[in-house]
Amino acid sequence: MNQNLKYFLFVIPAIAYIGVFAFFPSGEAVYYSFLNSQGQFTLSNYKELFYFNIGGTIINTIIVVSLALFLELLLGLGIAAVLTWEFRGKKAFSTLVIVPMGVATVVAAIAFSFIFQTSGGYANSFLKLIDLPTFNWYANKYISLLTVAISDSWKNTPIVALILLSGMLSIPRDLYNAAALDGAGPIRRFFYITLPNLKKFIAIALIIRGVSEFNIFALPLILIGYHPSILTTLAYDLYSTSTIYLSSAAAVILLAFISVFIAINIKLGGGNK
């Protein structure tokens, strides 16, 4: 009993930190989301969100999350597959792959704002170099959201790649050797051996990144501003516009929490079937 008490005492600072800096602000946001300007409990704050196109904002958030997760999973699989090979310069390649994780989000956002500039941006300069027409990366809502997803996936793909790499390295090589002897090519080995054995690792990567994707803020704010809005930028827009929208901003935050919990529940529930 004394030993267990000692372990518990070591954990208390971590519990206090999480409670003060995570659970308390979250609970306060939920509380304020049900208060009006007179301090009375009401649901009018949630009705008011329809005037700020909350439906379109939720759709925009889902689009960004889906595109970013797709790109991160696709690139992560490719990078992890390359890192399973032995080749000259593997250490240098591994270092380059991990570099985006150390770049601050604001710095990455500013860098990509230079890349996707409609006039003189690096992306359009490259298109000119290979004799392709230039492109307006902010021509409409969907292209703007794609720009955000591409920028976000560059920074976070290394996390997915490392998770998938650990999964690939855990697959016995005997399975690949046996499949090769039976005449299975690289593509069939990938779909019938690699992917089935990576299901749990893919689920872990998608859950970790999916939760984080709902929290992206600085990157879309710098790249596209408040329009098209996602949940985090809408909440900040309402909060910074006037104090009368403080409760509405808290309601948006609560909806973001609910969206994350629903996504996790769907994923975990589907994985248990």
Score class of each variant (00 low, 15 high):
residue 121 G to N: 08
residue 58 I to V: 15
residue 119 S to G: 08
residue 34 F to E: 05
residue 39 G to S: 07
residue 170 S to G: 13
residue 169 L to Y: 13
residue 124 N to E: 08
residue 52 F to Q: 12
residue 145 L to D: 00
residue 127 L to S: 04
residue 124 N to Y: 04
residue 118 T to K: 10
residue 72 E to W: 00
residue 105 T to R: 04
residue 159 I to N: 10
residue 97 V to F: 14
residue 119 S to L: 04
residue 81 A to T: 15
residue 46 Y to S: 13
residue 36 N to D: 09
residue 107 V to A: 11
residue 136 N to P: 04
residue 67 L to G: 05
residue 80 A to P: 02
residue 101 M to F: 15
residue 67 L to E: 00
residue 169 L to Q: 12
residue 83 L to P: 03
residue 48 E to T: 04
residue 93 F to C: 12
residue 45 N to K: 08
residue 160 V to A: 10
residue 40 Q to Y: 12
residue 128 K to L: 15
residue 83 L to K: 03
residue 127 L to F: 04
residue 146 L to D: 00
residue 100 P to E: 12
residue 92 A to C: 11
residue 159 I to H: 12
residue 139 A to P: 01
residue 134 T to Y: 02
residue 133 P to E: 01
residue 123 A to T: 10
residue 90 K to A: 01
residue 102 G to S: 10
residue 48 E to V: 08
residue 90 K to M: 03
residue 91 K to W: 03
residue 83 L to E: 02
residue 38 Q to D: 06
residue 81 A to D: 13
residue 99 V to F: 10
residue 68 A to W: 00
residue 60 N to R: 09
residue 156 N to V: 01
residue 121 G to C: 13
residue 137 W to D: 02
residue 120 G to S: 12
residue 126 F to R: 06
residue 68 A to M: 12
residue 100 P to Q: 13
residue 109 A to M: 12
residue 161 A to M: 08
residue 34 F to M: 11
residue 67 L to Y: 07
residue 80 A to D: 02
residue 60 N to C: 08
residue 135 F to Q: 10
residue 98 I to E: 02
residue 52 F to M: 11
residue 53 N to A: 06
residue 98 I to P: 04
residue 37 S to P: 00
residue 54 I to H: 03
residue 67 L to N: 04
residue 147 T to H: 00
residue 173 R to K: 05
residue 67 L to W: 05
residue 147 T to N: 00
residue 143 I to G: 11
residue 126 F to H: 07
residue 101 M to G: 08
residue 73 L to H: 03
residue 133 P to T: 03
residue 170 S to N: 14
residue 100 P to A: 10
residue 73 L to R: 03
residue 45 N to Y: 08
residue 79 I to M: 12
residue 162 L to V: 13
residue 174 D to F: 02
residue 98 I to G: 02
residue 127 L to G: 03
residue 61 T to M: 07
residue 134 T to P: 04
residue 108 A to N: 14
residue 42 T to A: 13
residue 164 L to E: 14
residue 106 V to W: 00
residue 138 Y to Q: 12
residue 112 F to V: 10
